[in-house]
């Protein structure tokens, strides 16, 4: 079993005296096309929250745009991948004392006005991880052929395992409670392509999952990270991760960790 010895107490919920500090994390690689629009949209929706753009080794003006837009930024000087960018965002949130995290993709697929809908279950239902699902919303008739079919199987699998209804495990539009944030920072977060295995892992560690319908939009600009051979590798990795999930241990190199 995965060790829960990270001593994760139950979340400091919204009811507790500490005022929630919410950080919006945007992992971005070469998103100079869509980022200005996204940030402009984000500003009026959530004036009180801070935004972090994790520039994952972009070759364009992604970081400059983020700084101009008043965001905090962290740049990876080499491209580490989507999951690594998220993880950096989580670590940043921990360092800077944020309590809750909302993550949305830099390509403009995830509408900022839906952030409130994601935060709702954290606040009211005591959920730890809230996932915005494109498939839970009835008007999303997206048909991606094989990929959609495979993702359906994975969704069914994850739902059965966790006992929570999960329709869109690949969704990067998520909100996290303090406990989920601490858990993700602890170790074991897959840094290449987080997927259903993360949700199952979170569930095994006592996190309560919740899905809300979100009407996703087509990406504004840039290139999708899912394509070609990557999709094949993606499913291979997921299969291995799911197979080994219950017996996997922490990385042997984590003891090099300073904290």
């Amino acid at each position: 079993m995965i060790s829960t010895s990270e001593a994760l107490s139950r979340p400091a919920t919204w009811a507790e005296p500490t005022t929630p500090r919410i950080l919006v994390i945007i992992p971005a690689k070469d998103e100079s096309g869509s980022l200005p629009g996204l940030l402009a949209e984000l500003a009026p929706v959530h004036p009180a929250t801070d935004t972090l753009v994790v520039d994952d080794g972009s070759n364009d003006e992604t970081r400059a745009i983020a700084i101009t837009g008043g965001c905090r930024t962290v740049r990876h000087h080499v491209n580490l991948g989507y999951g690594a960018a998220l993880l950096t965002g989580y670590h940043f949130a921990m360092r800077e004392g944020y309590t809750h995290v909302v993550q949305l993709d830099g390509d403009g697929q995830h509408p900022p006005h839906a952030i409130e809908a994601l935060l709702g279950p954290l606040r009211e239902d005591g959920a730890d991880v809230v996932v915005g699902s494109r498939y839970l919303a009835s008007n999303q008739g997206q048909n991606w052929g094989l990929r959609r079919f495979a993702s359906k199987i994975i969704a069914w699998f994850a739902s059965t395992w966790t006992g929570h209804k999960i329709t869109d495990p690949t969704s990067g539009f998520q909100a996290l409670s303090p406990a989920a944030l601490a858990l993700l920072c602890s170790d074991g977060f897959p840094e290449d392509y987080p997927d259903a295995d993360v949700l199952i892992w979170l569930h095994l560690n006592g996190m309560r999952l919740h899905e809300v319908p979100v009407a996703m939009r087509p990406r504004v600009a840039g290139v999708s990270m899912h394509g070609g051979m990557r999709v094949a590798y993606y499913f291979y990795r997921l299969a291995v991760c799911l197979l080994l999930l219950p017996v996997r241990r922490h990385s042997p190199w984590r003891s090099e960790r300073r904290r």
Partner: peptide
């Protein structure tokens, strides 16, 4: 890489 980014 992460640490450099954060410190920067």
């Amino acid at each position: 890489t992460r640490q450099v980014g954060l410190l920067e």
